[in-house]
């Protein structure tokens, strides 16, 4: 394969050496330790068992994502409801913004609350499925990139929750207009939090391991 520099030379890993590396501070310990003596983090050997946690948070996130899209994010009352009160879900909110002509903001909201969460479900699910399968170095690099992007971008989905929070605090103009948060705000926040936890519990070291269920060295 046309892998970069270190390519096919076997890399000495902590696991192959019969040691455990701390995922939080990098210190290396013998396998009979179950807690890092330097930073106190729990030591986990890199095997597929840790994926259970990833899937648990993943499904929790997916379940919360359904009501987040079906229920209204917020309801707006203008002129004490005389000029109509409107409730809008996430996608309706985006269309409203397009209707107002603010395309840039509409794109931000659309990306942050629809593209990013969906992409995150797909990416984490895929990573968890292929984790530990034999891969070339190139593939491993790609997967690590994807994982890093997912980890970095996940928090940004919270934008919509903050928008609802700010609007409902700000737009309390009595008779004129008032905004109230809807149930979707809570379930969307939970969905984002769960997928963040799912991404965090994914062990990136699995990307680099050929066949993790087989015993090492022998």
């Amino acid at each position: 394969m046309s892998a970069p520099s270190e390519s096919n030379a076997p890399v000495m890993t902590a696991h192959r050496a019969g040691l455990i590396g701390c995922h939080s501070c990098g210190r290396v310990w013998t396998q009979d330790h179950d807690q890092c003596l330097r930073c106190g983090a729990h030591l986990m050997p890199p095997d597929r068992r840790s994926l259970q946690k990833v899937w648990a948070w993943w499904f929790a996130g997916l379940i919360m994502y359904i009501p987040a899209n079906l229920f209204p994010m917020m309801s707006t009352q203008t002129f004490a409801g005389l000029a109509g009160s409107s409730e809008s879900t996430i996608i309706e909110g985006v269309f409203e913004l397009i209707h107002h002509g603010s395309y840039d903001i509409a794109i931000i909201v659309f990306v942050a609350s629809i593209i990013v969460p969906m992409g995150k479900f797909v990416a984490i699910g895929w990573l968890a499925i292929v984790a530990g399968r034999p891969a070339t170095v190139d593939q491993a690099h790609t997967r690590l990139k994807i994982y890093e992007v997912v980890e970095f971008i996940g928090r940004w989905s919270m934008i919509d929750v903050f928008v609802v929070a700010i609007l409902s605090a700000l737009v309390q103009l009595g008779f004129m207009a008032s905004v109230h948060p809807g149930p979707a705000a809570a379930s969307f926040a939970l969905s984002v939090a769960f997928t963040m936890l799912s991404a965090q519990s994914f062990d990136a070291r699995l990307i680099w391991r050929g066949l993790p269920l087989r015993s090492k060295s022998e």
């Binding site: 000495m12 939080s24 290396v28 890199p46 391991r209």
Partner: peptide, 16 residues
């Protein structure tokens, strides 16, 4: 290599 003293493992890929 027996005790892990003086070594560091990459948290992302486990390389020593």
């Amino acid at each position: 290599l027996a005790t892990g003293r003086g070594l560091m493992a990459c948290p992302k890929c486990d390389a020593l």
